[in-house]
Amino acid sequence: MSATRVCSLSELEPDSARRVVVDGVPIAVVLDSAGEVHAIGDTCTHGDISLAEGFVEGDTIECWAHGSAFSLRSGRPLNLPAYEPVPVYAVQLDGDDVLIDPSVTKPAS
């Protein structure tokens, strides 16, 4: 599978997330305050809640329902009640286009 265009960089707002679905995989695309684009699994591992509806601060995203925060870099939960990580996907930028391949995940660090 190859990377799919999910949005343009200009469509993303700093410290916010946007939900996209690529090949049936829900993904939260996040532009952090430093201008870096991240792509993580959009479903909180504690409950069936969209992380894109949560809160972005620095390099974390917090689930609005129960407060679990996840690292945008590793997908690891930073606090309870979640204890399982979410997948992190490689992001490619091609000019203003944001591309993601949901079959390619970054190893948790």
Rank of each mutant, 00 (worst) to 15 (best):
A65C: 13
G24V: 05
D23L: 09
A28W: 05
A52P: 11
Y89M: 02
N79M: 06
C7Q: 08
S2W: 12
V98H: 10
S68I: 10
S68C: 00
A28S: 12
I27K: 12
D15T: 07
G67S: 04
S2V: 08
P107W: 03
D94L: 15
A3Q: 13
Q92M: 14
S74P: 02
A69D: 08
F55N: 09
F55H: 09
E84N: 08
G58F: 11
T43S: 02
L12W: 09
V98N: 04
A34S: 14
V98I: 12
L51G: 01
V91H: 07
L93V: 10
S50F: 11
G58E: 06
L99K: 15
R73V: 13
G41I: 02
V30N: 04
S68D: 14
I61E: 02
P14I: 13
A17Y: 10
G41C: 03
V56F: 01
S74D: 00
I49C: 12
D94T: 09
V86N: 08
C63V: 03
D97S: 09
S10Q: 02
P85R: 15
D59W: 11
Y89V: 00
R5Y: 06
A39P: 01
G67I: 08
W64M: 04
L78P: 13
E13T: 12
A90E: 15
T4E: 08
D15Q: 08
D42P: 13
G67Q: 10
R76T: 02
T60E: 12
S103L: 05
R73L: 12
I100P: 08
P81S: 00
R19P: 00
E84T: 09
V25P: 03
P77S: 14
T105R: 02
V21R: 08
R18V: 14
W64P: 04
P77K: 09
A39S: 07
T60A: 00
Y83G: 09
S16Q: 09
P85Q: 10
D48E: 08
S68F: 03
N79R: 13
E57Q: 12
V30K: 01
G35T: 10
P77M: 05
T4M: 09
P77C: 10
Y89A: 13
P26K: 14
S103R: 07
C44A: 06
D94N: 07
V29T: 00
I40R: 03
D94P: 05
S10V: 03
Y89R: 08
S50M: 04
G75K: 03
P81V: 02
C7S: 15
R18F: 00
V6N: 04
S8F: 02
A82S: 01
K106I: 11
D32S: 14
G54P: 12
V37M: 05
V21M: 05
D23N: 15
A3M: 01
S109H: 02
G75F: 09
G54H: 13
N79P: 11
A17C: 04
P87E: 11
G24Q: 10
P107R: 01
C7W: 01
H66E: 02
P81Y: 00
A39I: 07
G67T: 07
H66V: 06
G24N: 11
M1D: 06
G41A: 01
V22E: 09
L80F: 15
A82K: 03
Q92K: 12
S74I: 08
